[in-house]
Write a protein that binds this DNA or RNA. Structure first.
Length: 767
DNA sequence: TGAAGAACTTAGGAAAGTATCC
DNA sequence: GGATACTTTCCTAAGTTCTTCA
């Protein structure tokens, strides 16, 4: 049974088995789908005639304004209302860090800089703003003053060397740089799954041809007609070489590059919010590229156009200096809207929607939003019983809308489904609760439901679960003919109806609050089960197991990494080898003192567990590995010598190494034949070997636990729930109570993001 | 009132960085 | 000390929800 199902059983919402009262009797005429034909049958059975049925997988025509696919995005429209700040805080002195151009006198300078950075950090910490110790302020006004330096634009396109070209029917193609850039985007992905996706290819090729046309076509009059006749391999190879060269730089060179980059970014990385220095999140404008939609995305592969300063709207204080636009350009618009959190925005050309530059996760504004989110989820604690009572009752409501609401909230509450908003044709076909369709739910009497659909990011949600009997009955009704695949299960619902209903219980309550609530509640319950004993590593493992329970509840998945199967195999082999070594030790003990077998039969039991076949396999594996190691060592050593122009190792050297391995092989073969171990010099007494056995046992246990953890985590992503759903205060309390360093649970970035939590709770705090 | 617009949170994969192994 | 494995951060897509407008 899945965790979600288990939690469901725990809560077990009882329902009696009354038959359904005809829903149609109380159904009033409703206008569900304005797009559908207006039939009005007030009293008939809803599923015979109700117009809601026409809501066949209703997709928005286009969610956003349609624009020509490749036209430059229009400048964002100016807001008509200018919000008035309710209070203006006194501005502090300008703390902007002025980048001074120093010459590189390497070490000494570096040390000085490090010291400076340290000092600055300390200074920052001193006057750090602990918003969580202040009174809750009005949150419609996000700031009184906001100063920043704008955004960083991606570097202009660097044309490829003249011998690197696209080939068409085997002939080189001379492209104008604008088109070459787009071809390069594709070439860079040549070995990825994207490049093999026909939709991606088609979208890319259309946009590529259009850019080519806009720029006068190919320079050597090759006419490009078909994607399949294009050959991008030369470009791809070139990018690979460049990547390799970058990798080959010395660590010193890499560091130098990093430092220069950091210095350049410094001015953009921070802004001044109400006089305080705060970090900006995504201060870099997204570079042009091919849009990589997830799942079966109709627009995947389309060209994401380069964003120019003219496309950008900056948001800052009226009195803040306007950062200069890049040479020869000007900003699209300057705005002074202190009711929003963003510093800059632009309209992108794929969906014609906005992209925003915001503050970083460790900023006060983000922190406050986060805090409020968890407090809201905690507030749900005092309403959840009433909500569950009501939806259990409403599962039998005579009003269809009420039944649908009840079932939907049940699913959201028990299985942690997302709200499920409407989607347009030009997005991937994914669903959430309200948008579930006939084919996503299979009913197996008496009360088993199989959910199988693609959720956010086209991640599959598959669960076979037992549900409340009345829920099962209602789902049967929602699927009754004439409904068929393609039809909406909840034909009278959408998230806004659901959320409006939820707000009756609690202001601000929406479908997504349930996910936060149930995730944090589950974490609290799981943590409560952990005994306060054992090593830090053991406690951590338990914490991760609790975290995993939450991740599974929220269906947070990740793709299994490429080498996973191999890694697991390797690790299990190692464990098997450790077991074998243990057996060998025990054999050695008996060789020293045969009498022990009778005295401690249990201790020596496992000697018999190891079969000859297993032992032979282990021997072979070890020997093969050693041989391979020798060969690798030989090649590596000679490569190095060749590079340093030294004399190469002779083949006899390799032979010598291999002979040693051969000796070992003989030893193993003997051992297998006689069952006698060759005693090592360190095995001088029974006690010494027993101590070694103990060490091996410890290693086996640790490795086994780690392997199990790794396997269980291979498809589950713990991060998302840790970052977004589990109240960080729970983790802080766990660390305090169990004496686990917070660093073991939160990375540096997370510690910064959750500073408010780390500094605000004691060990008695509960979610 | 509903659709579109806007603003925000949530999400997985890629890239970069770090630790560990040999 | 280099290769490899693992962890963390970055990037930006994809959701939800709130607001505005006709």
């Amino acid at each position: 049974m899945t965790i979600a199902a288990a939690s469901k059983v725990k809560r077990d919402l009882s329902s009696d088995d009354d038959d359904d009262v005809p829903l149609s009797q109380t159904l009033r005429k409703r206008k569900i789908d304005s797009a559908s034909s207006a039939s009005s049958h007030d009293d008939a059975d809803p599923y015979d005639s109700d117009e809601a049925i026409s809501k066949i997988s209703k997709k928005k025509k286009t969610k956003r304004i349609k624009t020509e696919p490749l036209s430059s995005p229009p400048s964002p429209k100016k807001k008509t209302t200018t919000p008035k700040p309710k209070k203006i805080k006194k501005e502090n002195s300008d703390v902007k860090v002025k980048a001074t151009k120093k010459k590189k006198e390497q070490k000494k300078k570096q040390e000085e800089e490090d010291q400076e950075a340290e000092d600055q950090k300390l200074k920052d910490e001193e006057d750090e703003y602990k918003w969580w110790e202040k009174e809750n302020e009005d949150d419609t006004i996000k700031w009184a003053t906001l100063k920043h330096n704008g955004v960083i634009f991606p570097p202009p396109y660097q044309p490829l060397p003249s011998h690197i070209k696209l080939y068409y029917d085997g002939n080189p193609v001379d492209l104008p740089p604008q088109a070459e850039e787009v071809a390069g985007f594709f070439a860079a992905l040549l070995e990825s799954d994207h490049a093999k996706n026909p939709v991606f290819q088609k979208n890319f090729f259309n946009d590529f041809l259009q850019v080519l046309k806009e720029n006068g076509g190919t320079l050597n009059n090759v006419e490009l007609k078909e994607f399949s006749r294009c050959d991008f391999t030369k470009m791809f190879d070139y990018f690979q070489v460049q990547k390799e060269q970058k990798k080959q730089l010395t660590s010193q060179e890499k560091k130098q590059i990093r430092l220069e980059r950091e210095k350049f970014e410094e001015d953009y990385k921070f802004c001044e919010l109400d006089g305080r220095k705060e970090q900006v999140g995504n201060f870099k404008v997204e570079p042009p590229d091919l849009f990589r939609g997830r799942g079966a995305h109709p627009k995947t592969g389309k060209l994401k156009r380069r964003v120019n300063p003219e496309d950008i709207v900056l948001n800052l204080s009226k009195d803040a200096p306007i950062p200069p636009a890049p040479e020869g350009h000007k900003w699209g618009e300057i705005r002074h809207d202190n009711t929003v959190q963003w510093l800059a925005m632009w309209r992108e050309n794929i969906f014609n929607s906005f992209k925003y530059v915001r503050l970083a996760a460790n900023s006060s504004l983000k922190g406050q939003s986060d805090f409020k989110k968890f407090e809201k989820a905690r507030q749900l604690k005092s309403h959840i019983d009433a909500i569950r009572r009501d939806y259990t009752r409403n599962l039998k409501s005579k009003v269809m809308l009420e039944r649908q609401k009840a079932v939907a909230i049940y699913l959201i509450d028990v299985f942690a489904l997302r709200a499920g908003g409407e989607k347009s044709e030009d997005e991937a076909d994914t669903v959430g609760c309200c948008s579930l369709r006939y084919e996503h739910v299979t009913l197996k009497p008496p009360n088993t439901v199989i959910f199988d659909f693609l959720g956010k990011d086209s991640i599959r949600f598959y669960q076979e679960v037992e549900v409340d009997k009345q829920v099962f009955k209602n789902l049967t009704i929602f699927k009754r003919p004439p409904k068929q695949p393609g039809h909406q299960l909840f034909d009278r619902l959408d998230p806004s109806i659901l959320n409006k209903y939820l707000q009756n219980y609690m202001p601000g309550l929406t479908a997504k609050v349930f996910r936060t609530y149930n995730a944090s509640k589950t974490m609290q319950d799981q943590l409560d089960l952990i005994p306060n004993k054992g090593s830090v590593a053991e406690k951590l493992l338990k914490y991760n197991a609790a975290n995993r329970t939450v991740a599974i509840l929220c269906n947070h998945q990740r793709t299994v990494t490429k080498g996973h199967a191999q890694t697991v195999e390797k690790a299990s082999n190692r464990i098997q080898e450790l077991e074998w070594q243990k057996v060998r030790c025990k054999r050695a003990i008996l060789q020293l003192d045969k009498g022990l077998l009778k005295k401690e039969p249990k201790y020596f039991e496992e000697i018999e567990d190891l079969t000859k076949e297993d032992e032979a396999t282990i021997h072979k594996r070890i020997i093969d590995r050693e041989i391979e190691k020798c060969q690798r060592k030989f090649v590596r050593e000679n490569d190095k010598r060749k590079f340093e122009k030294e004399e190469l190792l002779p083949e006899t050297q390799l032979k010598e190494w291999l002979e040693k391995v051969e000796e070992k092989k003989q030893e193993f073969e003997n051992e297998l034949k006689t069952g006698e171990v060759e005693l090592k010099s360190t095995w001088s007494s029974v006690e010494k070997i027993k101590a070694q056995v103990e060490k091996l046992e410890q290693r086996i246990q640790t490795s086994s636990i780690q392997l199990k953890d790794k396997e269980e985590n291979s498809q589950v992503s713990l991060g998302t729930s840790k970052i977004n759903y589990i109240d960080p205060r729970l983790s802080v309390v766990f660390c305090k109570k169990f004496d686990v360093p917070i660093e073991k649970i939160f990375t540096k970035t997370l510690r910064e993001k959750f500073k408010w939590a780390i500094e605000s709770v004691d060990e008695n705090w509960r979610f």
